[in-house]
Amino acid sequence: MNRRVFWIIAAAGVSLALLVWLLAGPGRRVVNRQEVVEIDALPTPTPAPEQRVMLLFGGSDGMLHPELRSVPMPAEVHERVRMVVLEVLAGPTGDLQPVVPWPAELNVVFVDNKGNAFIDLSAPPEPLTGSHTELLLAYGLVDSILLNCPELTAVQILFGGQEVPTLTGHLDFSRPLVLNKRFIAS
């Protein structure tokens, strides 16, 4: 290789570097105005104190029956709603029956500033039937949440990330449901 080839390659390298710098360069002109936003590390959860909660499950009489259970109850309302729903989904420990008749997962918990909670469960794998199934599911969850989170006034249940007008063709799931003790055994 002679000196001429060397200078050609060197010039090509410099030209390429200049081209890339020009293409990427304009964004660098604002460096003096950039701010670095510090991203805090995720907080480490601290164990919440245990508290007795009342959870509602189905009985052989077709009514909701309470089961008392001690669980860690965080102070933050989203976390308390999640805790109650997970306990209801886990099912009863005694002779009662689950109110959600499929192995549902809790996807989302939202709480708005009007006291409405929104919970999203994974959708049932097969269509359900019967207003009784629907009512026990709805009020087993809604009443369990509202009885243990008194700052809330209503709960809307979503399925598979969707607002549904009704689950089995009876109860109105399109809006938040309020406490309804008519299905709790006296």
Partner: peptide, 14 residues
């Protein structure tokens, strides 16, 4: 080597 060095250095800002 010189060519690769120049190319790498030029890409660093990008």
């Amino acid at each position: 080597f010189s060519f690769l060095f120049l190319l790498t250095a030029s890409l660093l800002p990008a």
